[in-house]
Design a protein around this nucleic acid. Structure first.
Lengths: 341, 341
DNA sequence: GTGAAAGCGCTAACAG
DNA sequence: CTGTTAGCGCTTTCAC
């Protein structure tokens, strides 16, 4: 391994001069700098960032923790975060918690010594634990509110509101919300906004929960939805929506003919599905970039940190999985006179 | 930050004893060990892996480099690799090259000082460059043959052979291969095997290349496929297949009615698509786990390394996107008497 | 079984 | 502008 010392020797200067050529070039005469650079290049020298971290206290590494890498919601976020970090000369550790809060905590604790900050994406950990852990390492969070922490929220409420209104406009009077895992801010937010919006639109909302945030969860929920008299379903994410559509189909129900289904994420599988899924966009790539920037700002600010909060817009994209409520699907036990908005 | 020194002081022993309690517990009396452990626990001490790396030369970190995190082929592999690494007490840096060989090289060079080994998944770099770089850091590769390197191959040839025979059995006589990016071993392997299998099955094979390994690539290829007289298409991956099906549909052609389409990967979008995609499984999770183990073995063996090569099976999964060749689609210019197998 | 001391590769005052 | 020195947190001989 070629070290700073080899370069110093080969170029006839002291190690500190070599160090300076890399970490504070303006403090070195152009002549020496060029010579050192040339020698370093020739020897194939690369600074050892771990050693540097020991003296500077900065690792130039970030941790990125997600619940499930294979959930199509995350890859675009990971990709963007990682690209943005690299732009800022940071490398990123990516870790998957398997939706397990304990693993999440363990991960944070082992990672924290090796990174300057940790990005928590849709964490499953309680706020209480997060607040305790923040003494160890700076955090930024995506899709979770923790006071005092740099936060990026994808304002799913906007999309949910539009989705409920969209269903109401199509004549749906009884709608369901297939909720996500507990501990998920997005899930709570969807619940709250959907409840509000349903009341305003004068439609009846049933919340079915909790469901795994996967196609399996959606598939399993089909039993509860079919024959319930509900004709519009808002799902925790696209995967759940796709699973639900499949489960409905197995029961001889068609989408959007018999029921309308809406997902969340605007993920690849949803875009490629037939019928194309009506869904709520989640600006995951933007969130990844922004979260990295907020995190880095907090890292560099140190104590002077003023926790920023970014709210990213979400919008409803109407495609093919929603349509007019089928009269035939209207239940006999329809409330006497639902307020039409 | 609580260091080994704080623990030493608080428990009335020397730092080296604390060090030993963590890295060689058997060299410490049970009594002192327990006391040190208790104190460390109380203080919330966690060893600093970067500092440890400086003396041991082992970072306990791995690098994982992929062409595109958002390509659904990779997330299951990343997830599995990362989980397996953690099992072995390793953390992993994940980096995306955006399909850019130069970025891949740059990444390897900046990462190499911080990791004990690098996992190259479907690299876009030439073998020549990889062989030069291996002096810097141990490698393992997935889906690429580099002699002397621990390798995991997903034997796509098996699946391709089965796919071509499947199309031939269904009566297809002119088939196309929508090839992937150059530099991709998988793509070359598919090409070679498909050519062989087509000759044996007595069908005519046309290779269309190169295509972006995305739905866009497939969509764009639809123009060349439609009206060409080819009735069966084997695509570089599921995404291309899905894009192609979409492009065909836009031209009024149905799958599997007018043409049969086969993908590769058995990815989520393919499974959820209608028609369900006939595809070739790629054991990505198994490959991720195995590659990590081979890499770690190479890292630990040092010079004594004997490069292992693992070949993982792939199989054809027949679903709904393939069917009998439509007589109407048979071209007038059919070769006089194609050998029927 | 435990302490002492050297050193991993690098940076950061401080002199000159 | 460049050299000297000390030290980051930890492991690892080598003594005792």
């Amino acid at each position: 391994m070629v070290t700073i010392r080899d370069v110093a020797q080969a170029s006839g200067v002291h190690v500190s001069t070599v160090s300076r050529t890399f970490s504070a070039p303006h403090l070195v005469s152009a002549e020496t700098r060029n010579r050192v650079l040339a020698v370093a290049e020739g020897l194939g020298y690369r600074p050892n960032r771990a050693a540097r971290a020991l003296t500077t206290g900065r690792t130039h590494n970030l941790g990125l923790i997600v619940a499930d890498i294979a959930n199509p919601f995350f890859p675009p976020l990971i990709k963007a975060a990682q690209a943005q970090a690299r732009e800022r000369d940071y490398h990123v550790f990516v870790a998957d918690t398997d939706e397990n809060p304990l693993m999440e905590q363990e991960l944070i604790e082992t990672l924290c010594k090796q990174v300057d900050g940790v990005l928590l994406c849709s964490p499953r950990l309680s706020n209480r634990v997060i607040e305790r852990l923040r003494a160890q390492v700076p955090f930024a969070v995506v899709n979770r509110r923790v006071k005092g922490l740099p936060t990026v929220l994808m304002d799913v409420g906007q999309g949910v509101r539009a989705a409920v209104e969209h269903l109401a406009d199509l004549g749906h009077r009884r709608i369901a919300l297939l909720s996500g895992p507990s501990g998920s801010w997005t899930s709570e937010e969807m619940h709250a906004t959907a409840t509000d919006a349903a009341a305003e639109a004068g439609v009846e909302l049933t919340v079915l929960r909790p469901n795994e945030p996967t196609e399996q969860g959606g598939l399993a929920a089909a039993a509860a939805v079919a024959g319930s008299g509900m004709t519009g379903v808002l799902c925790h994410n696209d995967l759940v929506a796709l699973g639900l559509i499949e489960g409905l189909r197995e029961r001889g129900l068609s989408v959007p003919g018999d029921l309308s289904v809406i997902g969340v994420d605007d993920s690849l599988p949803g875009r490629l599905n037939r019928p194309k899924l009506t869904t709520i966009t989640m600006p995951t790539a933007a969130a990844g970039r922004m979260a990295v920037d907020l995190l880095l700002a907090a890292v560099n600010a140190g104590d002077a940190a003023t926790a920023a909060l970014a709210r990213l817009e979400t919008t409803l994209i109407v495609r093919e999985s929603t349509g007019p409520a089928a009269p035939s699907a209207l239940p006999a036990r329809l409330p006497a006179s639902p307020a039409v908005r």
